[in-house]
Design a protein around this nucleic acid. Sequence first.
DNA 1: CTTAAACTATACCAAATGAGTAAACAATAT
DNA 2: ATATTGTTTACTCATTTGGTATAGTTTAAG
Lengths: 134, 134
Amino acid sequence: MNINQATDYGFRAVLHLAEQAKGEVVEAQAIAQSQAIPMRFLLKIMPSLIKAGIVRSQRGVGGGYILAKDPGEITLLDVIEAVEGPFHLNRCLTDESFCSKNGPPHCKVHQALEDIQQRLMQDFQSYTFAKLRD
Amino acid sequence: MNINQATDYGFRAVLHLAEQAKGEVVEAQAIAQSQAIPMRFLLKIMPSLIKAGIVRSQRGVGGGYILAKDPGEITLLDVIEAVEGPFHLNRCLTDESFCSKNGPPHCKVHQALEDIQQRLMQDFQSYTFAKLRD
DNA sequence: CTTAAACTATACCAAATGAGTAAACAATAT
DNA sequence: ATATTGTTTACTCATTTGGTATAGTTTAAG
């Protein structure tokens, strides 16, 4: 029941980019050092942020990373789902077949978890990197 | 970022006990069958519910499990913490040394996660098994 | 048009966790 | 005494986690 390390590093990488002057490209090395993220590991995480449309990259000399959209448009949930995939609190919410009481009506536990999950996702969504940066 | 299977089984085991007439002792076999929980696995989970003061057990012929307190006094959070241990959304909230930006003032991400975690815990706490049972 | 500085894609690895099984043990009602 | 029921501990196997390594691709600059 916790956010994994890759996602945590993702948060900090995006936050670092959000703190730059607009248009500033930052190389992996700089992100890794300033955020205390193992360089190689960061390089493995970045592509998922790119695929999710959160970050853009530039290769070659003078290359690096830059946000693909305004920090106000990027939320904690975006980064979580970019790195970890679709958000689910319980595997019975991922795949009905895991629910020992599946088939409508769902069991009470299932229903409660679904509601809690929805509120939690909204909470994660309410934090943009513009908000976090300030 | 999800609740593990043991905890999910814990929820359903406690719910099953909450659905019994007051004073009714239910044997592991019956819980396992009615909730589709592997018997041996259930037997391994129950002691943590007992240590947490949620359930009591009775050994020997005619033994089994019974809630140690009123279903209205047992919350989803109680079961989660009984089975998984203390609740933390991020390892930097468990152990400061994991936070790349530790030392006050905490980084913005840390602060946000702390707030989200607190609301999530309150949400889990707001579901009692009396509520779930009905 | 070569080169060095970046990122990308795979593959690999050790340790931890997850999900479940097994066997020997302890308590208790009859 | 004994069969029944929970307890404890250990074991197993697969997956995930967190991280490293290596070979490759893109590109600015000389």
